[in-house]
């Protein structure tokens, strides 16, 4: 028995020595936790997360709130779902949607299918919507993002969420993506990045909510243009409203981009 205890004691001491050395003899390093998954993992998303994604897209990448705000440039977002049924049965409705979800999708990819009275493109008698197809162009939302927006709209209006979370993961960008971009060279790319063409006429874009920029260099100098980018409300061109243009471009654009944009605009004569 004495031998037995001695052997046990010896073995335990050995183990204690190894453990002690590993705990205290070498520097303590805490391994980094597993990385957050960068891609939105649709397969493992709950509906709540999916709805939250819709909210983020609406406020961020979708740039929807640029117009859908209380300045009256576009219908209020929270009015869309309550009025949908009425719009679907409206005689002016040209789309093919059968239910709420389809209607919402249609209104994003084919905005002119139904234009709420008073919000049409000037001179089109409410037949053409000023809203771009958000699945293309500078906004370029993916299908999962569109569905997420629908889920968010349904949910926030108190309706049942009828969309399903898509299982084939599309390209869903996180907001960080924008923060980590590098300065763009081409002024038209810059314009596309910040959605200028949604309101302004610039390059191929045909926005008509804000001054036409295609020949702006002829009437405005560089100082004015730079100031208008950084502080849009400093001076409002006649015929346009104050507070329409986002005033945080100075925070979002790289300094070189502001300069390139200014140079480009000043050269448009």
């Amino acid at each position: 028995m004495k031998q037995f205890l001695a052997v046990i004691g010896f073995s335990l001491l050995t183990i204690a020595a190894f453990t002690g050395y590993s705990n205290f003899g070498i520097p303590r390093i805490e391994p980094a936790p597993p990385p957050k998954q960068e891609k939105i993992d649709l397969g493992s998303m709950t509906m709540d997360q999916f709805i939250a994604l819709g909210d983020r897209v609406l406020n961020g990448k979708g740039t929807c709130k640029l117009c859908h705000n209380d300045l009256g440039r576009a219908p209020m977002i929270k009015q869309i779902v309550p009025n949908a049924e009425k719009h679907l049965t409206d005689s002016r409705y040209k789309g093919e949607a059968k239910d709420l979800a389809e209607y919402l999708m249609e209104s994003m990819v084919n905005p002119s299918a139904f234009v709420v009275a008073g919000f049409g493109k000037a001179g089109s008698n409410d037949t053409v919507s000023p809203m771009p197809d958000v699945s293309g162009g500078s906004i370029g939302l993916s299908e999962p993002e569109l569905l997420a927006i629908i889920a968010y709209l349904q949910d926030s209006a108190g309706a049942d969420v009828t969309v399903e979370i898509p299982t084939d993961a599309g390209d869903v960008a996180e907001e960080e993506e924008a923060e980590e971009r590098e300065p763009l060279e081409d002024p038209l790319e810059i314009a596309a990045e910040f959605g200028c063409g949604t309101c302004h006429k610039i390059g191929e874009e045909e926005g008509d909510l804000a001054p036409d920029l295609r020949t702006i260099g002829a009437t405005r100098d560089r100082e004015f243009l730079r100031r208008s980018i950084l502080y849009p409300n400093a001076e409002i061109t006649e015929g346009f409203e104050e507070g329409m243009m986002p005033d945080d471009l100075g925070d979002q654009m790289f300094a070189v981009e502001v300069e390139r944009m200014t140079d480009y605009l000043a050269g448009l004569k």
Binding site: F18, T19, S22, N23, I26, R28, I29, E30, P31, A32, P33, P34
Partner: peptide
């Protein structure tokens, strides 16, 4: 998470 060495050796 990856356990730290101390954790693992315990």
């Amino acid at each position: 998470f990856t356990p730290s060495l101390g954790y693992a050796t315990n």
